[in-house]
Nucleic acid binder design. Structure first.
Lengths: 219, 219
DNA sequence: CCGGATCCCCAGGGATACTG
DNA sequence: CAGTATCCCTGGGGATCCGG
């Protein structure tokens, strides 16, 4: 990217990560951990291979990612975030929180992946009852699956299935995520396609961080 | 900007504010308040008029800014942030904090403005001694002037001159900002061009938020 | 099949000039 | 002052091809 040529830390940051796709590459590496080229390409539907290749070189030059040749049995190169790349997490959190308002509309050709189902509760909800026993919620949306583990005041998530969840939420991505982020309540959610099985009372433990939504509602 | 087509709040946010110049326009409006077209153009050295015009239309369509015709005596249109535009402040803060590391090098043709001198202490430092009496620091760098007012646990800033500052810092932008954000100490700063007059002890009251710098140093 | 490199085409950005 | 119009050119999107 052409530099903005401004001695301002925001402009400087955008000089480095302001290019198209760049922050989404960081998002992929942040949520999935070390990735192969093809993993990244699959996780970023729509990106051209040459563009991904070029971005990875730029990010490596900027010391945001590092490439390492995996040990013999795997024999592939893995890309992973450096400490400086990891330090972009607050930026992605702030962007993701602000962008929640645009999740109300879901277009039919939107891509959707399990990681994106997982990071929202991990980043944008807290455990409202830290003293309660641990609990596990299974999420299913558009065939993508993720697990929320609540306990000790923490909300952790991962992709995949849980062995014995206390609660299963299944429905369109917009409904599942809308419920978790506090944009829809559970009665509304079941009316527009959510299937609930297990202990719906657990949902009261997940307290959404509704910073800007609350601000918007105040107007 | 072409949509990423992903049902992910980060991608959605970037669909709206990921275009070149867009976040810097928000930065200008956030720091300067309501602006005229020409104010924005002057505050964004290097932007083309047609591009600014186009971005303002897009931002208005996205309800991040609003245009209002100022009352008769002024007879011009003012652009200002809507509440949703103001909600981008955490994004700019996170970006600006992460970008501080790139302020160590200053290129000779970098543009520099008083607002950028002012926001760094306001966003990235805290008052380490809330019970101490109020104090005023005058900043001067490359002819640009800003004022820091510390008091009651708050660090407020504005551009311009103070009537009777307790401390005056004058030097190259890199040195003044490096000192305020904790990247240089005062003895180092005076060696590379900082002029100090008044009470340098006030600097101990400004505690930099050195989140990522501290993390980088730990390695 | 993985990890790219190459090529072509077009939208979007940059610079300048011009107008109400 | 507040934009619009124009031209040029870079950089992104898409497909294909190639070496390991």
């Amino acid at each position: 990217m052409r530099s903005y040529g401004q001695y301002c830390s925001i402009a400087r940051a955008l000089d480095v990560v302001g290019d198209r796709w760049t922050l989404l590459i960081v998002r992929e590496l942040l949520m999935r951990g070390p990735c192969r080229f093809t993993d990244l390409k699959n996780g970023l539907p729509g990106i051209a291979a040459n563009l991904l290749s070029g971005r990875l070189k730029e990010l490596e030059d900027a010391a945001l990612i590092s490439r390492e040749d995996a040990p013999p049995p795997i024999a592939t190169t893995l890309y992973s975030l450096t400490e400086n790349g990891l330090a972009l997490e607050p930026v992605l959190k702030a962007l993701g929180l602000w962008g929640l308002q645009y999740m109300a509309v879901e277009r039919p050709d939107d891509a959707f992946q399990a990681q994106w189902l997982a990071y929202a509760p991990a980043w944008f909800t807290t455990d409202a009852d830290p003293d309660a026993p641990p609990a596990v919620i299974q999420l299913v949306a558009s065939g993508e699956q993720a697990v929320i583990e609540i306990g000790e005041g923490q909300v952790r998530t991962r992709t995949g299935r849980a062995a014995d969840p206390d609660l299963v939420l299944d429905g369109p991505p917009r409904v599942v995520l809308g419920l978790l982020t506090g944009m829809i309540d559970i009665s509304g959610a079941t009316q527009i396609g959510l299937t609930v099985s297990g202990r719906p009372d657990l949902l009261t433990r997940l307290r959404p961080i509704v910073e800007d939504q609350a601000a918007a509602r105040r107007t």
